[in-house]
């Protein structure tokens, strides 16, 4: 507390400028981020404004390197602080921020990761009805994403999490859940077909996700036309780096 009185605003502002210069040079050095938090905590201006400015700053740094996980971690801390000071949740704004990042670059796994964290929180706080709406929107969003780039693993990791998510499973009417899964299923089959016609090869990630979808659908009593065994046998040839995993899954299935 005494610090605050003895040192003037100028000092804190120049300290922020100094650490910013450091961060631009060494964005992966943990203690600079940590020191910056300390500066903000002790800043003469204890209003929410400096934290809001900080959020703008971290957005800029994440523009330079969108995969810097120190930056993403820092962002979560800043957002939490703003939420505490204003008493308002920023979940939807932050979700929109991940959308913006993913739309810029669909392979931004850090943004997809952040999306799972935020969505889990939103699911936890929402009423059932608004969750159902969000889930519908999300099905549309991931369908769009996989049509945009079916080669990149980020979107597929996200999809396999999303379709098995407990809230997704339990919020929707069973028939509605089944319908959305089957729709997703036929879209994945379609992408795979397109790839086959276009390049003569099936899409490995489509096959991998069809296997997951097959399990999820079976769990709710729906048989698919895609044979899990056939997908696995194909992957053994098409994705030989991970051949032993597929052999293992084949054995598990028997």
């Amino acid at each position: 507390m005494q610090l605050k009185n003895e040192l003037d605003l100028l000092f804190w502002s120049s300290e922020l400028l100094f650490t910013l210069a450091q961060l631009r040079q060494f964005p992966k050095v943990y203690w600079i981020w940590n020191h910056r938090i300390w500066v903000l905590e002790n800043h003469l201006d204890s209003s929410v404004n400096i934290w809001k400015e900080e959020l703008v700053m971290v957005s800029k740094l994440l523009k330079i390197d969108a995969r810097n996980f120190h930056g993403w971690l820092y962002r979560r801390i800043i957002v939490r602080k703003i939420e505490q000071l204003t008493g308002e949740k920023k979940l939807f704004e932050e979700l929109a921020y991940t959308t913006e990042n993913i739309n810029n670059n669909i392979s931004n796994f850090s943004a997809w990761h952040q999306r799972t964290v935020l969505l889990s929180k939103i699911f936890g706080e929402n009423e059932n009805e608004s969750n159902a709406k969000m889930i519908h929107d999300e099905f549309a969003y991931i369908t769009n994403a996989m049509f945009t780039d079916a080669e990149d693993q980020s979107v597929w990791f996200y999809i396999k999490w999303f379709i098995k998510n407990k809230v997704v499973r339990e919020t929707l009417e069973p028939s509605e859940y089944a319908r959305l899964l089957q729709e997703l299923h036929s879209n994945v089959v379609m992408i795979n077909q397109d790839d086959l016609e276009f390049s003569g090869k099936e899409n490995n990630w489509c096959l991998k996700i069809l296997i997951v979808l097959d399990d999820v659908l079976k769990n709710i009593g729906i048989e698919t036309c895609i044979e899990k065994k056939k997908c696995l046998e194909q992957l053994i040839n098409a994705d030989p780096l991970r051949k032993n995993r597929y052999l293992c899954l084949l054995n598990d299935g028997q």
């Binding site: 979560r76 796994f109 850090s110 990761h113 999490w161």
Partner: peptide
């Protein structure tokens, strides 16, 4: 532990 089967440096952090 994370959604994707990895672990992060603290709860909520991306898998590495």
């Amino acid at each position: 532990y994370n959604f994707d089967g990895g672990f992060g440096l603290c709860p909520g952090a991306e898998s590495h």
